[in-house]
């Protein structure tokens, strides 16, 4: 269970982006978070991914309350939540070939030996052909790069996946392919999903339930 409990977060303590937001994602469940841009969805997603320390409130992962963030967070908690960002161009290190990009989390966690096998397993799952894997980010399209970024988020088999506007930059067919890849992963592993976006049609069809962000809070969970 991924629980955000009355979280207040932002980039200036005196003026937080949102106050007291609560949201729960059960294992195997997919939750869509819908709202206009600038309302704080991405900040909430960053808190849920342990990348941004909230000013108040709690994040609980499977009963373990998260008390440290970013590098200081225990590795097993950090890697339990995979993230896909909106813009693949800025989310991919421009110096790494796609294969290295996908293998990086395994190398960073000292599991070098598994890297090659995992890349070979993930690449077809997200629709990347072998010739693309040797290319660097500037040599592939946004869609191809986002596929690699999704694969990277899945490399360590996270128990939750957070897709922060994952498909906002992409065309319809790539969107469908990426959503299908996420769903296949969830079916095989039972992972939970938090999909952040502003496309109501997509989120309604993709997710078990959709939470709409109203008055600076996810409305459904904050009556």
């Amino acid at each position: 269970m991924l629980e955000l409990d009355t979280v207040t977060a932002g980039y200036d303590r005196r003026a937080p982006v949102f106050r007291g937001a609560s949201l729960t994602v059960a294992p195997g469940q997919s939750v869509g978070l819908l709202g206009p841009s600038g309302c704080g969805k991405s900040t909430l997603a960053r808190v849920a991914a342990l990348l941004h320390r909230p000013d108040a409130g709690r994040l609980v992962l499977d009963g373990t309350e998260v008390r440290t963030w970013r590098h200081r967070a225990p590795r097993e908690l950090r890697t339990a939540v995979g993230v896909v960002f909106q813009q693949p161009r800025t989310a991919a290190d421009p110096r790494l070939a796609l294969a290295d990009l996908i293998a990086e989390p395994l190398r960073a966690t000292g599991r070098r030996a598994e890297a090659e096998g995992r890349v070979a397993e993930l690449a077809p799952a997200v629709g990347l052909t072998a010739d693309l894997l040797t290319r660097r980010p500037h040599e592939v399209s946004d869609g191809q790069l986002q596929r690699a970024c999704l694969a990277r988020a899945l490399t360590l088999r996270p128990r939750w996946l957070i897709c922060d506007e994952m498909t906002a930059m992409l065309d319809a067919s790539t969107t469908a392919a990426l959503v299908a890849a996420v769903e296949t992963y969830r079916e095989t592993t039972g992972a939970g999903l938090l999909a952040v976006g502003h496309d109501r049609v997509l989120l309604d069809r993709w997710c078990d339930r959709t939470v709409e962000w109203k008055d600076c809070l996810p409305a459904e969970e904050n009556p």
């Binding site: 990348l51 950090r78 966690t109 990277r152 490399t155």
Partner: peptide
């Protein structure tokens, strides 16, 4: 930059 966030989320240490 988000690619640093992605690395942190992927378990990379500060040194890495």
């Amino acid at each position: 930059r988000p690619f640093v966030d992605a690395a942190v989320s992927g378990g990379a240490s500060r040194w890495r």
